[in-house]
Amino acid sequence: MNEYNFAYLDEHTKRVIRRSLLKAVSIPGYQVPFPGREMPMPYGWGTGGIQVTASVIGKDDCLKVIDQGADDTTNAVSIRNFFKRVCGIRTTEKTDETSIIQTRHRIPETALKAGQILVYQVPIPEPLRFIEPRETETRTMHALQEYGVMHLKLYEDIAQFGHISTAYAYPVIVNGRYIMDPSPIPKFDNPKMHRMPALQLFGAGREKRIYAVPPYTDVVSLDFEDHPFDIQQWDESCALCGSEVSFLDEIITDNDGIRLHLCSDSEYCATRVGASQ
């Protein structure tokens, strides 16, 4: 029992998932139900993203896997090794050289190109879930474009905090029609989704939903005219490469609470350090 099909899933399952992907691409931002399978990793650990990647990956592809922006966090390592084992394909850390990137919680700082595919791991696909727990209700709301409650939530945030209090998984409207959860990427990354030349695919394994944003699609973050969407900013720059425009992780380095700020995207940072030497 050591022989697995290429990319682990059997061809029938891949076809079923691809059909769901086609539907998703035809209706940008719409959540397509799909018959997700149990995978060798637990639900919640990327099974949706893995099933999507497994359905689109081919022998000539080159795969990059990141988690929190870095290639060598434990989960990214684990998933990359899984694909090496069941596909035997080339893997890389270089964003430029890859054809498929599977990501958890970040979009790479390096701009993606046409022909690349970005696969997002999604825990909760439904952007309205925390306002309305029932799926029967949220389905109706999407169908009838009854998104009033979403704006109510934003209004309440401003009334209470003076700001929209969503910092990640910030809701967007796709192609002017569906409100979508972009997965728990920091809102810092939302602008990268707008008219991205690469294909963006989203997989939620446990909730069994797939959705997609085709290349060059409008993706706009929800806001008010007088409280426009804004992204995170730091006073500091990266302590290793000096970048002032990337998303920075805060690291506590000693018992006195001294902090360092470093690029979350490890490959972007290393490339900049290498280029300056």
Partner: peptide
Amino acid sequence: SAGANISERLMSQGERHY
């Protein structure tokens, strides 16, 4: 909030200025 209750219709009609 009371304000949110009153605002809902305005927002569902497309009003976007807080």
